[in-house]
Design a protein around this nucleic acid. Structure first.
Lengths: 227, 227
DNA sequence: AAGGCTAAACTGCCATGGTAGCATGGTGGC
DNA sequence: GCCACCATGCTACCATGGCAGTTTAGCCTT
C-alpha cells in the first residue's frame, strides 16, 4: 500500500504514464500480490479519469502482473513459480542465441560500454544501492542485444520478465551473493572478446540458472507473495 | 477494404471481439498495409462504441500490426522485413529449445496427435484449402509446445508472429511448395520418436529458414505491402 | 445464535461528449 | 504565381455517466 507516484510524466500520454507508475510499483513490490486495486481508487490516487487507468490495467494483465475478474475486481498477481521458470526458460533460450551472435561480431565501442557497466555494478553494490544495481544489471544485458541489433528480442524478454523481476527484488532482501553475478558478467565480456562461443554459452547458462536455486528458498521465506 | 465481420462473439467481451476481428482481417490481408482506419469508422462497422475499438487499437499496436499516430490517425502497418526476420530469429531460438525438450520426453498420445495433424495437412493441400492449411500448420507446432508444458512460450511466439503470418499468406498466393513443408513436419515427428536431438534441431532450423528465401521474392512481387 | 434474504455498495464494462492537436484546402496579400 | 494565414474538419485522447453483474453488510426470521 506504499505507492510511489511522484514521477512526472515526460511527454507520454496519460495512459502510458499510469501504466508505468503501476508497473514500477508492482515490480518493486510496493504493492503486495493479492491486493485488490480498482479503477476508481487509482484514478483518484493519480488524479486522472478512469479511462486511462482501465487501459493500463489491460496492458498489465497482458503481462500477468494483474488479474482482471470482470465485474468483480482487479488483483495484483501472486508470483507463480511455474511462470517464473518459463520466463527463465525463454530468457535463457534467447540470451544464448544472441550471445552466440555477439561472439561472432561485436564492436570495440560496445565492449567498452560493457566494461563501464560492470564498473558501475561494483559501485552500486559497494554503496548497497540494490535497486540501482538491478537497473544496471538489466542495462548490461540490454547492451548486448542492442549491439546485435536485436532490440525487439530484448523487448520480448523485458515483457516476459516483469514476472521474475519481482523475484529479483526479493533476492535483495534475502541478500544473495552479488559478487558471483559480477564475476559472471566479466566472464561474458571476456568470452565475447576472445570470441569463445562455448564459454559464453556456458557462463550465460549458469548465470541465468542461478535464479533456479534461489527460487525455492525465497518461496519458503516469503510465502505470502507466492501462489 | 473487404472486411469480414460475420463472426459472432463467443462469450468474449466486446473489446476482445473487436480485437480479434481486426487482427484476423489484418493478418489475412483483407485490409491492406498503409490503409488508414479510425475509431469512428470501425465502431460504426461493428456497431459498438469507440471505447472498445480504441482498446483494440492499443493491443494491436503492441504487436506492431497497426501504427497509432496521436491526434492524427491509425494506420495498418506495412510488412517490415527486418521485423519479420527478427520474429523468425526469436521463433527459431525458442522452437529449437523446445524441440530439444521434446526429443527427451514425449508421450505416445502426443505423437499420435502430430501424426493426425500431418494427415490433415495433406488433406488441406489436396483440397487447396490454403487458409485452413495455415491453421493446421500452426496447430502442429503448438502441439509440441503443449506437450512440453511450454504454452507461455508458445504465446510469445504467437504474439511475435502476427507479423510474419502476413508473409505466409502472401506465400500462398505466390504458390510456394508445400510438400517440402509437410516432409519436414514428418521429419520432426521421426526425430522426436527416435529421440534424435541433432536431427530435430537441424530440420527445425531448415524448416524455419525457408521463409528467408521466400522473403525477398515476395517483396519483389508485392512491393505495395512492404515498407 | 444461526441462517437466509434483500438492498445497498461496490466492481469493471461500455457509451457518449468534449477537447487539443494535426492535416487540409481555400483565401487574401504580395 | 507564390506563400503566409486561417477556417474547417478530421484524429486520437480523456472525462464522465449509466449499466449489469457481483460482493457484502445488515436486517429479519426462525
Amino acid at each position: 500500500m506504499a505507492w510511489k507516484i511522484e514521477q512526472p510524466r515526460n511527454g507520454n500520454s496519460v495512459s502510458d504514464h499510469v501504466y508505468e507508475v503501476l508497473k514500477k510499483n508492482i515490480v518493486a513490490l510496493n504493492v503486495k500480490p493479492g491486493e485488490r486495486i480498482s479503477e476508481n481508487e487509482i484514478s483518484e490516487l493519480l488524479q486522472v479519469s478512469r479511462t486511462p487507468v482501465r487501459e493500463a490495467f489491460i496492458k498489465l494483465s497482458k503481462e500477468d502482473l494483474v488479474h482482471i475478474l470482470p465485474q468483480r475486481g482487479t488483483y495484483i498477481s501472486y508470483i507463480d513459480l511455474n511462470e517464473v521458470e518459463e520466463a527463465r526458460f525463454i530468457r535463457e533460450s534467447l540470451e544464448k542465441s544472441v550471445i552466440e551472435l555477439a561472439t561472432n561480431e561485436f564492436s570495440e565501442d560496445a565492449l567498452f560500454l560493457l566494461e563501464q557497466n560492470v564498473a558501475s555494478q561494483k559501485n552500486k553494490i559497494e554503496k548497497k544501492a540494490y535497486a540501482e544495481f538491478l537497473e544496471v544489471d538489466e542495462a548490461f544485458h540490454k547492451t548486448i542485444f542492442q549491439e546485435c541489433n536485436k532490440m525487439r528480442t530484448w523487448s520480448v524478454i523485458d515483457q516476459v520478465n516483469s514476472q521474475y523481476k519481482r523475484i529479483r527484488v526479493l533476492s535483495f532482501i534475502a541478500n544473495i551473493n552479488w559478487e558471483q553475478t559480477i564475476e559472471q558478467h566479466q566472464g561474458i565480456i571476456e568470452a565475447i572478446r576472445t570470441k569463445d562461443t562455448q564459454m559464453a554459452l556456458e557462463i550465460m547458462s549458469r548465470h541465468l540458472k542461478k535464479l533456479n536455486i534461489e527460487k525455492m528458498e525465497l518461496k519458503r521465506k516469503y510465502p505470502e507473495y507466492f501462489k
